[in-house]
Design a protein around this nucleic acid. Structure first.
Lengths: 132, 132
DNA sequence: CTGTATCCAGGGGGATACTG
DNA sequence: CAGTATCCCCCTGGATACAG
């Protein structure tokens, strides 16, 4: 506790490449989730109804199978989504939000609201900044 | 509207490396903010009071000058923080939240709350998943 | 003190081909 | 259909040195 007051309290579990030390800081965990470029998209895509692998890929639009698989694994590991395999002729796999995953949609909605309300201000700020 | 329903509606402005097309989607903008690994940390560090460059670096703890500068520029460009230069003997620069930046703290707090409430569940899910 | 410039390693992530 | 495996490019971001 000699240094890095804010950093250690909120995020820092290690400089960057060190063993994650599972969950030193809650915020750090959430950030690694939210910052993942595809996670929110997938959670939102699952909000209305469970979806299968290829349905998800279509819904998101421009995600590769590789990234979709990886992100789904991460979300499953974090308990945000469930994965059910149907041993049909061509195998089908359905993903759905867990209660935990669904509970995350609330704060995410808060973020979306803020984004929609202030998007114009941000764009204006950028234009002004760049236009100097 | 032929494909990528969710993706285009929420995020996709380009595969990844293409010109950002300023602000196609609000959520995408917010994500690029939140996902930036240092932005939230800096906003939170500025919540209580304006701070100078080196004070911010100390507060965050493990951020390099390079990344601190870059993140501050991005936040300034987005109108989230202000930058005031004092032409003193050794120059001093003070950063502060703008109204826009301050308004972002609310949804961020929602995220923090969710994180604190469900951190245990996430850790448990991970342990269970890994322990298989 | 507050940056900017350069160098460079590591990893994120796309494309493609293959498997069960 | 639902992945896995491989290749590989490029960007992120740390370290260091330099400038105003």
């Amino acid at each position: 506790m000699t240094k890095a007051p804010l950093g250690n309290l909120l995020f820092a579990d290690a400089p960057m490449g060190a063993p994650p030390a599972p969950g030193l800081c809650p915020i750090r965990d959430v950030l690694s989730l939210v910052g993942q470029k595809w996670t929110l998209l997938i959670l939102i895509a699952l909000e209305a109804e469970p979806r299968r692998f290829s349905a998800l890929q279509r819904a998101v639009g421009d995600i590769s199978k590789r990234m979709l698989t990886q992100t789904l694994r991460d979300l499953e590991r974090d308990g945000m989504i469930s994965r059910e395999v149907f041993p049909t002729k061509p195998p089908a796999v359905e993903y759905a939000l867990t209660d935990l995953g669904r509970s995350a949609l609330a704060p995410i909605a808060g973020l979306k609201d803020w984004a929609n309300r202030h998007h114009g201000a941000i764009k204006a700020a950028r234009t002004a900044f760049d236009g100097v």
